[in-house]
Measured scan of single mutants.
Amino acid sequence: KHLIERYYHQLTEGCGNEACTNEFCASCPTFLRMDNNAAAIKALELYKINAKLCDPH
């Protein structure tokens, strides 16, 4: 559950690194913003595939 919350935060708030290159992070310049419901679904999907989590900045 904690990991899913981290994915959700990364998708909605980002890691804080303006030069982030993680396509699944709101801080990445090319990230496409999504609403909270879509972010919750995506967080579950990312958890299932063990996607990369950013280190908070």
Results as ranks from 00 to 15, higher is better:
3 L>M: 14
11 L>F: 02
9 H>P: 01
35 D>P: 06
57 H>T: 15
7 Y>A: 02
48 K>V: 02
27 S>P: 01
20 C>S: 01
25 C>S: 01
41 I>M: 09
26 A>Y: 08
38 A>E: 07
41 I>G: 13
12 T>R: 08
16 G>S: 09
23 E>V: 11
55 D>L: 11
56 P>I: 11
16 G>V: 04
14 G>F: 01
30 T>Y: 04
4 I>R: 13
55 D>W: 07
19 A>R: 11
40 A>R: 15
10 Q>N: 06
25 C>D: 01
42 K>Y: 06
28 C>A: 12
51 A>L: 02
51 A>K: 07
45 E>F: 04
3 L>D: 03
19 A>E: 13
16 G>A: 10
46 L>S: 07
21 T>L: 08
42 K>L: 04
34 M>E: 09
4 I>Y: 11
5 E>G: 10
21 T>I: 11
37 N>R: 08
39 A>L: 07
4 I>H: 04
48 K>F: 01
5 E>I: 06
8 Y>T: 15
1 K>T: 07
43 A>W: 00
33 R>L: 06
43 A>P: 02
57 H>G: 13
35 D>Q: 08
56 P>Y: 10
9 H>D: 04
19 A>Q: 14
26 A>C: 09
32 L>S: 09
4 I>Q: 15
20 C>D: 00
21 T>Y: 02
11 L>H: 01
8 Y>K: 14
34 M>Q: 08
15 C>D: 01
12 T>F: 04
15 C>V: 01
35 D>M: 09
41 I>V: 13
31 F>Y: 09
43 A>G: 05
17 N>Q: 08
9 H>S: 13
14 G>M: 00
40 A>S: 14
36 N>P: 12
17 N>G: 12
40 A>T: 15
15 C>N: 00
23 E>A: 08
1 K>Y: 03
23 E>N: 15
27 S>F: 03
35 D>W: 03
36 N>R: 14
57 H>K: 07
11 L>V: 10
13 E>F: 10
11 L>Y: 02
27 S>N: 09
23 E>G: 10
51 A>N: 05
11 L>T: 04
20 C>R: 01
56 P>W: 10
52 K>R: 09
52 K>S: 03
21 T>R: 10
39 A>K: 05
33 R>Q: 06
31 F>C: 10
2 H>N: 15
3 L>R: 08
5 E>A: 06
6 R>V: 10
28 C>T: 08
32 L>F: 04
29 P>F: 04
23 E>H: 08
24 F>L: 12
27 S>A: 08
40 A>I: 04
51 A>V: 08
8 Y>L: 14
14 G>S: 00
46 L>H: 14
50 N>C: 09
26 A>F: 15
51 A>I: 02
29 P>E: 14
8 Y>N: 07
18 E>C: 10
7 Y>H: 03
38 A>R: 13
43 A>M: 03
2 H>G: 10
31 F>G: 11
47 Y>M: 12
26 A>W: 07
14 G>D: 00
4 I>M: 08
2 H>I: 15
39 A>Y: 04
38 A>F: 03
44 L>P: 15
42 K>V: 02
43 A>Y: 00
42 K>G: 03
12 T>G: 02
14 G>L: 00
34 M>Y: 11
2 H>K: 12
26 A>G: 06
32 L>I: 10
46 L>I: 09
54 C>S: 08
30 T>F: 12
29 P>Y: 04
28 C>P: 02
17 N>L: 08
38 A>P: 12
13 E>K: 14
39 A>C: 11
26 A>H: 05
42 K>I: 02
52 K>W: 02
8 Y>F: 06
36 N>E: 13
7 Y>M: 04
16 G>H: 09
5 E>Q: 14
18 E>V: 11
33 R>H: 07
6 R>G: 09
3 L>G: 06
44 L>Y: 15
24 F>G: 09
15 C>Q: 01
56 P>F: 15
48 K>W: 03
22 N>I: 02
57 H>I: 02
40 A>W: 10
15 C>L: 00
20 C>V: 00
14 G>A: 01
45 E>H: 05
5 E>M: 07
20 C>M: 00
18 E>H: 13
41 I>W: 04
51 A>E: 07
35 D>C: 06
53 L>E: 09
38 A>L: 14
17 N>M: 07
17 N>E: 11
42 K>C: 03
9 H>E: 06
30 T>H: 06
39 A>F: 03
5 E>C: 06
10 Q>I: 05
20 C>Q: 00
28 C>L: 04
5 E>H: 10
29 P>R: 09
4 I>N: 10
44 L>D: 14
3 L>P: 04
36 N>D: 15
30 T>P: 07
45 E>V: 03
46 L>K: 01
15 C>T: 01
49 I>F: 03
33 R>W: 03
2 H>M: 11
32 L>G: 11
41 I>F: 05
49 I>T: 13
44 L>I: 15
19 A>C: 06
24 F>M: 11
18 E>Q: 15
5 E>N: 15
12 T>K: 08
44 L>F: 06
25 C>M: 01
35 D>F: 03
32 L>K: 15
45 E>G: 08
51 A>D: 09
11 L>R: 01
2 H>Q: 14
42 K>T: 05
47 Y>A: 15
27 S>K: 09
24 F>E: 09
25 C>A: 00
2 H>T: 08
42 K>R: 11
56 P>T: 13
36 N>F: 10
5 E>V: 04
43 A>T: 05
39 A>R: 09
37 N>V: 04
32 L>V: 13
15 C>H: 02
13 E>L: 13
2 H>S: 14
26 A>P: 01
38 A>N: 04
3 L>N: 09
27 S>M: 06
32 L>H: 07
8 Y>R: 14
44 L>E: 15
36 N>A: 10
46 L>Q: 05
36 N>M: 05
29 P>N: 03
50 N>K: 07
51 A>C: 05
51 A>S: 12
